[in-house]
C-alpha cells in the first residue's frame, strides 16, 4: 500500500490506469465522428472550444483552458488531480464537494469552473500548514467526526466557514448552518463536538 505520497493519493496507479484506459476507449470511438461533424458543422467545433481560465488554487496560480461545461469540482478532480474534494450527489444536495471561493463556502459541483476566473479557491488540500494539520482537521480526528470519511473534506471545509460566519454559537445553530453537509454514517454529534471545540479554542481560521 502506498501512503504519504506528496499529492495524498494512495491509489495513484489504479486511478491513472482508469484514466488511461478511458482515454484510449474515447480515442478509438471519437475521431470519425468528430472529423465528420467538423467538416459538416462549423458550429459544433465552436461549442467544443475551450476557454482560458486563470485562478488561484491553494495559493498557487493556474493558467488553464477548460470547456465551459466543466464544473469547478470536475476541474479540481479530473484535470488537476486534487481528489481531496469529493463528488457525492453532484447536484448540490450533499455538501461533499464544498470548497472555499474567495473565502466563502460553496458547492463546487454547481459552479462552472469558467465562472471562477480570477478567484481564489481553497480545497481540503490547502488548509494544513505543511505537516501541521488545520485545527479543524485535528478536532475531527480527536472527536471521531467521521466513520467512512467520504463526507469529511466537505464537512471540514464547511465547518471552518460555519465558525467564520459566526454561526457556531450553540449545537442547534451548528446543526442548522451545517445542514448542507450530509453524513450518512451519522457522525453528527461528534462533528458538532469538533466544531464546538475549535470555536471555543478561538484560533483565527
Amino acid at each position: 500500500m502506498q501512503t504519504n505520497k506528496p499529492n495524498g493519493c494512495a491509489n495513484e496507479s489504479r486511478r491513472s490506469f482508469f484514466k488511461k484506459s478511458t482515454a484510449i476507449a474515447a480515442l478509438a470511438a471519437m475521431p470519425p465522428l468528430l472529423a465528420k461533424a467538423g467538416e459538416n458543422d462549423e458550429k459544433l467545433a465552436e461549442y467544443f472550444e475551450k476557454v482560458p481560465l486563470q485562478l488561484e488554487i491553494n495559493g498557487k496560480p493556474y493558467s488553464l483552458t477548460v470547456e465551459p461545461r466543466v464544473t469547478l469540482l470536475d476541474l479540481l478532480r479530473e484535470q488537476l488531480g486534487l481528489t481531496g474534494t469529493k463528488k457525492g450527489c453532484d447536484h448540490g444536495q450533499c455538501g461533499c464537494c464544498t470548497v472555499h471561493v474567495d473565502g466563502q463556502r460553496i458547492n463546487s459541483c454547481l459552479s462552472l469552473a469558467v465562472m471562477n476566473h480570477g478567484k481564489k479557491v481553497t480545497t481540503i488540500e490547502g488548509i494544513a500548514n505543511g505537516d501541521n494539520l488545520h485545527p479543524m482537521q485535528t478536532a475531527f480526528m480527536k472527536h471521531d467526526g467521521f466513520q467512512c470519511g467520504y463526507c469529511t473534506p466537505g464537512q471540514i471545509m464547511s465547518a471552518i466557514c460555519c465558525i467564520r460566519e459566526g454561526h457556531a454559537g450553540t449545537p442547534e445553530e451548528i446543526r442548522e448552518y451545517m445542514s448542507g453537509n450530509i453524513c450518512r454514517c451519522g457522525a453528527y454529534p461528534n462533528i458538532i463536538d469538533a466544531i464546538t471545540e475549535v470555536k471555543k479554542g478561538g484560533q483565527p481560521l
Binding site: G92, G95, T98, Q104, R105, I106, N107, L110, S111, S158, C161, C162, E165, H167, Y177, M178, S179, G180, N181
Partner: peptide, 9 residues
C-alpha cells in the same frame, strides 16, 4: 431556504 453553501452562491 437551501443550505449555507447554496445561499452563498
Amino acid at each position: 431556504g437551501a443550505s449555507a453553501q447554496l445561499r452563498n452562491m
